[in-house]
Simulated scan of single mutants.
Amino acid sequence: MFSHFFRKPKPEHNPIAVLDKLNETLELLEKKEDVLLKKVNAEKEKAIEFIRGKNKRGAAQCVKRKKLYEQQIEQLGNFQLRIHDQMIMLEGATVTTETVAALRTGAAAMKAVQKATNIDDVDKTVEEISQQTDNMRMIQEALSAPLGAASYFDEDELEAELEELEAGELEEQLLQPATTAPAVSVQPPAGRQPSHPVMSNPEVDELTALQAEMAL
């Protein structure tokens, strides 16, 4: 029904060109109407002059021509009315055509969007993502699993042995005797010398023997 709206218009059927042509015709009719109005006024003035000159025949001829011009003016008015009517209809048809074309463009865009976001495609994409996620989790679990002899270790046994080692270490620390503090040698303050020289052991023995002899 609207197929003729979407055909490429011929130059003579282009709405804009047709509107321009109608405007030109309307302007031409208005100019002709102005000319006829001037002729009507001129014939009216002539008829008045003939009446003043008692020329009834001449006045009648002027009135007849005046009537003919007025008929032409009436026809031009009808032509102008038809052109105005056609211009209004054509402008409305142009707006309708543009509206339908815009709606068709919007419908095509919506169709393209719906095709790109088909519900089946969305479900398929979500399923593929879920499958890839599961595969990646399985790969990570496989890579983190122990290999070789380590895979046969019992976690409970390892934990029990570790606790046993910790208990033995704690017991050994508790049974170990306390160490005595090392003797601290007393040194005289720096810059001060002892009032008496320190004698070695042989000298002390010799002095003790001498004192004993003097006491005898």
Rank of each mutant, 00 (worst) to 15 (best):
M1N: 07
M1W: 11
S3P: 00
S3N: 14
H4F: 13
F6G: 01
K8F: 06
K8A: 07
E12R: 05
E12K: 11
I16M: 03
T25Q: 06
T25M: 13
L26F: 09
L26Q: 02
L26I: 04
E30I: 05
K32D: 12
D34N: 13
D34W: 02
D34E: 13
D34P: 00
V35W: 01
L37S: 10
E45Y: 03
K46F: 10
A47N: 01
A47Y: 01
A47D: 10
A47F: 01
I48Y: 02
I51T: 04
R52D: 14
K54S: 15
K54D: 15
N55E: 12
R57A: 15
A59Q: 01
Q61P: 00
C62I: 01
K66S: 09
K67F: 06
E70T: 07
I73E: 11
I73V: 13
E74R: 05
L81H: 05
L81E: 07
L81Y: 14
I83N: 02
H84T: 10
H84K: 10
M87G: 04
I88G: 02
L90V: 07
L90Q: 03
A93L: 08
T94F: 06
T94H: 06
T96S: 04
T99D: 12
V100A: 07
A102T: 11
A102K: 13
R104M: 04
R104V: 12
A107R: 13
A108I: 12
A109Q: 10
K111Q: 15
K111W: 11
V113W: 09
T117L: 04
T117M: 10
I119T: 05
D120G: 01
V122W: 01
V122N: 03
D123I: 14
K124G: 08
V126Q: 05
E128W: 01
E128M: 02
S130Q: 14
Q132L: 07
T133V: 11
T133P: 00
R137Q: 13
R137S: 05
E141W: 09
A142K: 09
L143D: 08
S144C: 03
A145K: 10
P146H: 07
L147E: 13
G148D: 10
A149F: 08
A149M: 11
A149P: 02
A150H: 06
A150R: 15
S151R: 10
F153Q: 11
F153T: 09
E157D: 14
L158I: 14
E159K: 07
E159I: 02
A160C: 04
A160H: 07
E161N: 08
E166G: 02
L170G: 03
E171N: 08
E171Y: 09
E171G: 05
E171P: 00
L174H: 03
L175E: 08
L175P: 00
Q176P: 00
A178V: 14
T179Y: 11
T180L: 06
A181H: 06
P189C: 05
R192L: 15
S195R: 05
S195L: 04
V198D: 12
V198R: 12
V198K: 15
M199W: 07
S200A: 07
D205R: 14
D205G: 05
E206Q: 09
T208W: 10
A209D: 09
L210W: 12
L210F: 08
Q211G: 03
A215T: 07
A215K: 07
